[in-house]
């Protein structure tokens, strides 16, 4: 599982999953916090579709954290002020990047995939509600 998808599921899914995995990492390994979770900004860059050029839409408040696991630095970044989640994400990032917990990775990935399924279910339910607002022009009759 690639980092982007892993982060997406951990950010959008139930935050207790990241908490559980991070707790398991903490239990087995010594964690050094390089940057405590703190608020900062990310500028959102957008490619507009008229001339295919780039512009800055605006900024988003985010929370980031940096930890060290062995020799590997892990980054945790999430929009909002969820400091605990930023820390947990940093820990998980470091664990996956370092391979320090290779034996556990398969189990964590399985739990992340399970969360992905729940997320997909929720998204599919939302999609059904939105899809009902799709206009069906074929039902319109032409008056002669």
């Amino acid at each position: 599982m690639q980092r982007y998808e892993r982060c997406r599921i951990l950010v959008e899914g139930d935050s207790s999953l990241a908490q559980e995995i991070a707790a398991e990492i903490e239990k087995e390994h010594r964690v050094e916090i390089i940057d405590e979770p703190h608020e900062e900004l990310v500028m959102i860059k957008v490619r507009e579709s008229v001339r295919n050029s780039l512009f800055y839409l605006g900024e988003a408040l985010m929370c980031s954290c940096r930890v060290k696991l062995g020799d590997t630095i892990g980054h945790g970044m999430v929009i909002g002020t969820k400091r605990n989640l930023a820390y947990n994400l940093a820990l998980i990032d470091a664990a996956f990047s370092s391979g320090i917990a290779a034996k556990k990775e398969a189990d964590w990935e399985a739990r992340i995939r399970e969360e992905a399924r729940k997320l997909a279910r929720r998204e599919a339910r939302e999609a059904t509600l939105i899809d009902k607002t799709r206009v069906d022009f074929s039902t319109m009759k032409v008056e002669v």
Binding site: E39, E40, L41, V42, M43, I44, K45, V46, R47, E48, S49, L54, Y56, L57, E59, L61, M62, M77, I130, T133
Partner: peptide, 23 residues
């Protein structure tokens, strides 16, 4: 408030057609 915070990151360019449309 925003002027009190650091801005170390610029996002990857968001392609406009990648939007997950609700409308």
């Amino acid at each position: 408030f925003r002027s009190t915070l650091e801005r170390p990151y610029i996002s990857r360019a968001v392609e406009a057609d990648a939007m997950q449309c609700a409308r």
